[in-house]
Computed example of a mutant assay.
Amino acid sequence: MPIYHMENEKMLKRHQLLQNKLRQFGFITQNAALLNQLEMMERIVPTDISVLITGESGTGKNILAEYIHKNSPRKNNNFITLDVGCLSPQIIESELFGHVKGSFTSAVSDHKGAFERAQNGTIFLDEITELDLNLQKKLLRVLEDKVIRRLGGEREIRLDLRIITATNKDIRQLVKSGKFRQDLYYRLNETTVHLPPLRERPEDIGPICQFFLDIYNKQYAKKISSVSTAAMSLMQDYSWPGNIRELRNVIKSATALSKREVLWIEDLNIFSKSTADTNPQFNGIKPLDTLEKEYLLYALKIFDGNKTKTAQALDISRPRLQRILERHKIAE
């Protein structure tokens, strides 16, 4: 067997093993480029190297952070998540570093911050770019000295933990514009994992759908086996601005409401990317009848007007397609 075939088989086996591990955490991908990147990430999982995870909202950054922690030597200790973007500037410092009783008006008791609670484990700071420059400076000092003091406190608390951060912003651009400290960026960016948006991973939509179908079939006592060819085509054409989080909600809703064993287009609360792109005023809400007609025209265009191929792609008979075309007054 040629060497390149042997190497390819070895890579496929490694990817399969990695996919199985990730699936246990609900992270599903068949994208070769992403799997190559995650395979590289696997090498630093057993270490304490800081990891910066980038990607749009809903791409699974929090799942990947937990995966890193649960497969590291610190897995039996706390994994503490703090979404910086959800906190007001007035309480972020207290939530990060803690405070002592009486340090400010509402501090009625001592409070352990996220860093202290993550002792010997991992802290995951989501939306790290939302920190203001003052707190960025304090965070850098903590990471370099591995020591914190609670607000209003004098006692130094030495830290032993791993830090993972994430952002949905272009952090390098923020560094260039002076909105994020370059020295802190270098400290957090010992290694980076970028999660591409779902629209760039169309091959992942089917497996992710099936994963969520399995979950919600059990939750709602349904027996939906799959998604129709036409519905899958629609989903692969859609831009998924909310990424996997949005796809999960679409499948959850469709599973709960559908009375079929296979999900059809009308079960899905989404619209065609091509429709949105060609109709700037379209706000995502249209009558189902209009959407069906637009999608039929789109499908016919894809197959150069060939009704037999169009019917096969839509998972319907050719006579049924003809009746639908007549109903919409779509000419030959």
Results as ranks from 00 to 15, higher is better:
residue 25 F to L: 03
residue 246 E to Q: 10
residue 167 T to Q: 01
residue 332 E to I: 10
residue 68 I to E: 11
residue 190 E to H: 00
residue 265 I to E: 12
residue 124 F to E: 03
residue 246 E to L: 03
residue 47 T to S: 09
residue 42 E to M: 13
residue 218 K to M: 04
residue 276 A to E: 12
residue 80 I to K: 03
residue 250 V to H: 03
residue 48 D to R: 09
residue 259 K to D: 15
residue 263 L to K: 06
residue 163 I to K: 00
residue 255 T to S: 14
residue 307 K to E: 11
residue 191 T to Q: 08
residue 123 I to S: 02
residue 154 E to W: 06
residue 176 K to H: 10
residue 267 D to A: 05
residue 179 K to C: 10
residue 330 I to N: 08
residue 225 S to T: 06
residue 144 E to V: 12
residue 225 S to E: 12
residue 268 L to D: 05
residue 49 I to M: 13
residue 332 E to N: 15
residue 162 R to I: 00
residue 97 F to R: 10
residue 232 M to C: 01
residue 263 L to H: 11
residue 112 K to M: 14
residue 228 S to Y: 10
residue 143 L to G: 04
residue 325 L to D: 04
residue 140 L to P: 08
residue 251 I to S: 12
residue 316 I to P: 02
residue 277 D to Y: 06
residue 131 L to C: 03
residue 216 Y to K: 08
residue 98 G to C: 03
residue 296 L to S: 11
residue 91 I to P: 08
residue 154 E to R: 07
residue 214 D to N: 13
residue 141 R to M: 05
residue 282 F to R: 00
residue 214 D to F: 07
residue 89 P to W: 06
residue 116 E to Y: 06
residue 329 K to T: 11
residue 222 K to Q: 06
residue 303 F to N: 09
residue 32 A to D: 15
residue 239 S to N: 13
residue 254 A to T: 02
residue 137 K to C: 15
residue 157 I to N: 04
residue 79 F to P: 00
residue 28 I to A: 01
residue 246 E to G: 04
residue 54 T to W: 04
residue 100 V to M: 04
residue 12 L to V: 14
residue 167 T to P: 09
residue 279 N to Y: 04
residue 17 L to S: 13
residue 318 R to T: 04
residue 332 E to Y: 09
residue 109 S to Y: 08
residue 186 Y to A: 12
residue 237 D to C: 04
residue 26 G to W: 10
residue 58 G to H: 00
residue 327 R to M: 07
residue 102 G to K: 03
residue 168 N to K: 08
residue 83 D to P: 04
residue 89 P to F: 02
residue 21 K to S: 08
